[in-house]
Amino acid sequence: MERPLVVGVDGSEPGLLAVDWAADEAVRQGLPLRIVHASLWERYEADALEETPGAGADLVTEHDLAEGILAQASDRARRRASTLDIGTDLVPQDAVSALLREAAHATAVVTGSRGRGPIRELLLGSVSLSLSARAPCPVVVVRGSLRNRDVANGRVVLGVGGPATGPAAARFAFREAAVRHSVLEVVRVWHRPAHRAAGHPLLRGEPAHHLEEEAWTLVDDALRAMGEPDVSSRPDVRRVVTEGSVRQVLLARSAAADLLVVGARRRHGRLGPQLGVVGHTMLHHADCPVAVVPHQD
C-alpha cells in the first residue's frame, strides 16, 4: 500500500493554502491524501464534560470546531481534485507530536508557513519548524508569493550543500521536476575563504580554482545520486555553480521556482532538532514552497 501524502490543518489561511498545494501534489504523484487536525479536546476536555454539570454545550462546540476544520479542508481538497482519494483524521495530540507520528508512515508531510493564535505574526510557525527539523520523511512548507504557489514557473531548484544534501534530497528533487515536466536546477554555491592558513592545501595554486572544481564535483555527485542514466546530459537538468552567499543565491532563485529542495542531516544518536542554517533561512524567507528532505548519517 502506498504511503499517503499528509497535510496538517488548523483552520488558518496558510493551512488551507497547504491543502491546495497538497491536493495538487497528491494528483501529480498518484497518492492518497490524508488530512490531519490535531486537537487536545478529547484528552483534556472529555472528562470535564462528564464531571462538570452544564458544561456540555461549550465542550461539544469545541469538538464541532475541530470537526468543522477537517470538513472545510476536505471539501476544499475535493473541489480542487474531485477524483482524489481523501481521508481525514482528528488526532488527540498536540500538532507536532501528531504530525511526527504521521510522518513515520507518510510519503511526505505538508504544512502551512504559519498557524493560528499568538504565533501567527511570526515568519514561520513553530509546528512547521519543528517538523522540518525532526521528521523522518520530507516536509514541505507551503510559503512564498501567490504566483509561486498557483502559477507554474517550470522550475524546481535543488540546493546542493555537500553531505547534508544526501541522495534522498537529490532523488526527491528529480521526481518533483519529472512529475511537473519542469526544469531541474542543481545549484552549488561556493565562496573564497577570508584567510588561508599556513599549510592549507589551497595555498598550492589558485584557491578559487580548487573551490570551484570542488563545487562542480558536488553537483555531479548529486546528479549521480538521482539514479537516472545520463541525467547530466538531459536538457531539462541544469548544473549551476556560482560564487557568492549560499542563502542569497538560493533565495534569489526561489523567486522564479515552483519548489526549492534542501537537505537536512539526521545524525544517528543525536537528540533534538537537526536543521542547518541554510534550511532554516529558506523556511523563513524563500519565495516559493520549500521541501526539507532528511538524510540519515
Rank of each mutant, 00 (worst) to 15 (best):
D75T: 13
R267K: 03
A23G: 10
V91C: 03
H37G: 03
Q93D: 12
D85S: 14
R155I: 06
V127Q: 05
H284A: 13
W41Y: 03
L49N: 00
A170F: 01
P207Y: 07
R76L: 12
L250A: 02
L275S: 10
H63L: 14
V231I: 15
A170C: 14
H280P: 00
V219F: 02
D287V: 02
E42K: 13
V237H: 06
V9F: 01
L70Q: 07
D230T: 05
A46Y: 11
A133H: 07
P235T: 12
G125K: 09
M282C: 15
Q274E: 01
R267Q: 08
P235R: 11
V240M: 08
I35P: 04
G276F: 00
P207S: 04
H268T: 13
T107C: 06
D10T: 01
P4A: 09
D89V: 13
H209Q: 12
R196H: 05
A55T: 02
L129S: 14
A135Y: 05
D236T: 13
V110C: 10
R224Q: 11
T61Y: 06
S128C: 06
A133P: 07
Y44V: 15
A18E: 01
V261K: 09
R28C: 07
W216A: 04
A26Y: 09
E51R: 15
L5N: 03
H195D: 05
A48E: 03
G68K: 07
F174M: 12
S12V: 01
A252Y: 01
G144N: 08
G87K: 08
V292S: 09
E2Q: 14
M1G: 14
F172S: 08
R120H: 13
D220Y: 00
G159N: 04
A104G: 08
M1C: 04
S130F: 00
V109N: 11
D220T: 06
V9A: 02
A197Q: 04
R43L: 14
E213C: 02
G54H: 09
V249Y: 00
H105L: 08
L123C: 03
A168P: 03
A198D: 13
L129M: 14
D230A: 15
L84A: 10
E228F: 01
L65F: 05
W190Y: 12
V9K: 06
D221E: 15
F172R: 09
G144R: 10
V60M: 05
R171Q: 15
